[in-house]
């Protein structure tokens, strides 16, 4: 295994009934970089990261994290190894306060050091810009703020690999810009796998891009390479590239 790659998958496949959502995906993720996973709706992006994080059981294939085969591990054990995952469909603890949400995320490793925990929660809230809402109940937040909270919960875990499934969906223009800034500030600190439809965000943040189509890898490369790739153009980019 190449020490440069934090994550690798081999022949990862998911079949729903008769539908092949992912077919034999071989994928390598470079450490410390931002990699964007793009592709049209229903291409199988969420399914892929679901199988990586353990949320979705793979039909077959293997997942390696830091060189270890983690295919047999349940989701919570994979998260404990240093994966963080944000849901495409917002999933926060709606009945708890913003502070408690982030505290739960950071608390898995810091619960027995209350002062460190408190500092961590506050710094994360500060970093994503919702510290003024710390005491609000998460369910009462606007949709955009719930998405930001979701990102905060990922950050609070200090992940080695941070997987974000369409984090900018439903965010306002200014919030998207802040998100881009946030991802850039994380570059080098951690590895990011970003599923994103907004090409502006992809071009502004990604070091590498992987294109998925019909459950298969269509193309891989730097943003420039992908931009020039004719197959990608026809499958996907044509309408979105200038957005």
């Amino acid at each position: 295994m190449d020490a440069m790659n934090i994550l690798e998958t081999k022949g990862l496949t998911k079949i729903y009934g008769g539908l092949k959502a992912n077919t034999d995906i071989d994928f390598k993720l470079a450490r410390g970089k931002v990699t964007a996973l793009i592709g049209p709706n229903g291409a199988g992006k969420s399914t892929f990261v679901g199988m990586v994080s353990g949320r979705t059981a793979a039909t077959r294939g293997r997942v390696f994290f830091e060189g270890e085969d983690i295919s047999h591990l349940p989701a919570h054990s994979r998260i404990q190894l240093g994966l963080a995952y944000t849901f495409q469909i917002t999933s926060v603890f709606r009945g708890l306060s913003v502070y408690e949400n982030v505290e739960l995320a950071a608390g898995r490793t810091l619960a027995d050091r209350p002062s460190l925990l408190k500092a961590k929660v506050n710094s994360v809230l500060e970093r994503v810009g919702i510290s003024d809402r710390a005491d609000q109940i998460a369910g009462d937040l606007s949709y955009g703020h719930q998405r930001i909270l979701e990102i905060a919960m990922g950050l609070a875990q200090d992940p080695k690999l941070f997987i974000l499934d369409e984090p900018t969906q439903g965010l306002a223009e200014t919030e998207v810009d802040e998100f881009v800034a946030l991802i850039r500030s994380l570059a080098g600190e951690t590895t990011i796998l970003l599923i994103e439809h907004n090409m502006k965000v992809v071009m502004a943040t990604a070091d590498f891009i992987t294109v998925l189509d019909h459950g298969m890898v269509l193309a891989e490369g730097s943003p420039e390479e992908i931009h020039k790739n004719a197959a990608v153009q026809s499958a996907y980019l044509g309408t979105n590239v200038d957005a």
Binding site: R55, A75, H76, I79, Y85, R94, L104, A105, R108, Q157
Partner: peptide, 19 residues
């Protein structure tokens, strides 16, 4: 607090690394 988290949203709790 983790019990409450499971009550509120079990899948989220699991995806935060809680068994």
């Amino acid at each position: 607090k983790r019990l409450v988290a499971i009550r509120e949203n079990e899948e989220r709790a699991r995806m935060l690394g809680y068994d």
